[in-house]
């Protein structure tokens, strides 16, 4: 290998790639973690909300004249894309909760898993019906020049990735402020701790759960737009693997823990980037999953997960 695979620059470049990828995974993971933390259900339709978010962002972009003939400044356009996508995905999250999860709140644990599967099929094929099967491309090259970015020695961080990373950090920071600082956030933690006690304390559980889904899904929508901006491609089936990855990140970090989701996302991104850099891109998923099994066996509750208290 004479192409500098052993060089520091190469390592740095792959690190940067991994962290950006991780930022996206972290945002998806946050949605999983929020919902799991509060309701203890695995929301497998989350990845498809992310897909819808990416499509909303795409159509907002097209509606504003497309990247090359934008009717508003680029910064404003990106802001509107994120705002509309997050709002739309959040509302979708509320609807999903209402139809597919609320009636099942006291059913066996596995029932929501199946209705989530149904939601997932509906969203995927609904998108296929509405948007056709063709793959849309965000076409950001005429948005922000490809060459814009930071060059540190041999490491390149392009403008779009910097933007996405900054946005991801802002959203995560905002989320942890929301969970820790607001009344809804506190109510959410109370429900996560003990739902029955929370009801007795006069907390409106339905409303809080609605908020949880809204915020979690809005984050997925934001992640969808980000993926469009960095990785360009948007299609109806994109949520499946992304959802799986986000879920994985949430689990590794310790499901139910917000800093855990961020840590898990970034670690997953780096692991993927590194395996495809030094081993084989083809095996990167398999190796990543094997690593995760190892993590789970050593720390069954994830890296930052709380020790479970088994109620008898």
């Amino acid at each position: 290998m004479d192409n500098g695979v052993q060089s520091v620059d190469y390592f740095g470049q792959q690190m940067v790639n991994g962290i950006t990828l991780g930022g996206v995974y972290a945002l998806i993971a946050l949605g999983y973690t929020l919902v799991y933390g509060v309701l203890q259900i695995l929301n497998f339709a989350h990845g498809d909300v992310y897909m819808i978010g990416a499509f909303i962002g795409f159509f907002v972009m097209v509606g504003l004249g497309g990247p090359s003939h934008a009717v508003v400044p680029v910064a404003v356009m990106i802001f509107i894309m994120f705002a509309v996508s997050m709002l739309g995905s959040g509302l979708l999250g509320i609807v999903i909760e209402k139809f597919a999860y609320r009636p099942l709140r006291n059913s066996p644990r596995i029932a929501p898993l199946i209705s989530a599967l149904g939601v997932s099929l509906l969203l995927q094929n609904g998108a296929l019906l509405l948007f056709s099967g063709s793959i849309r491309s965000y076409d950001t090259s005429s948005f922000v020049p490809i060459t814009a970015g930071i060059h540190l020695g041999g490491v390149t961080i392009d403008g779009m990735r910097i933007l996405v990373l900054v946005l991801a950090l802002i959203l995560m920071f905002g989320l942890s402020r929301w969970v820790n600082g607001t009344q809804v956030g506190r109510a959410m933690r109370a429900i996560a701790f003990d739902r029955d006690a929370a009801i007795m304390m006069g907390i409106n559980v339905d409303r809080v759960i609605m908020w949880t889904f809204f915020v979690g899904s809005a984050l997925a929508g934001a992640a969808g737009v980000m993926v469009g901006l960095v990785f360009l491609r948007v299609y109806s089936y994109m949520g499946f693997l992304a959802g799986l990855k986000g879920f994985t990140a949430a689990v590794v970090g310790g499901i139910g823990s917000i800093p855990g989701a961020m840590l898990g996302g970034v670690l997953l991104g780096i692991a993927e980037s590194m395996t495809s850099a030094y081993l084989s891109p083809n095996f990167s998923d398999a190796i990543t999953f094997l690593l995760l099994i190892a993590v789970m066996l050593i720390k069954p509750r994830g890296l930052l997960g709380r020790r479970a208290i088994v109620k008898v």
Binding site: P108, A111, P112, I114, S115, G118, L121
Partner: peptide, 21 residues
Amino acid sequence: STTRQLIIGTMLIVLMVTKPQ
């Protein structure tokens, strides 16, 4: 073909919600 998938999806949700057991 798409309709088929939509129906299966709807059916899963409806059956689970009405008969979670």
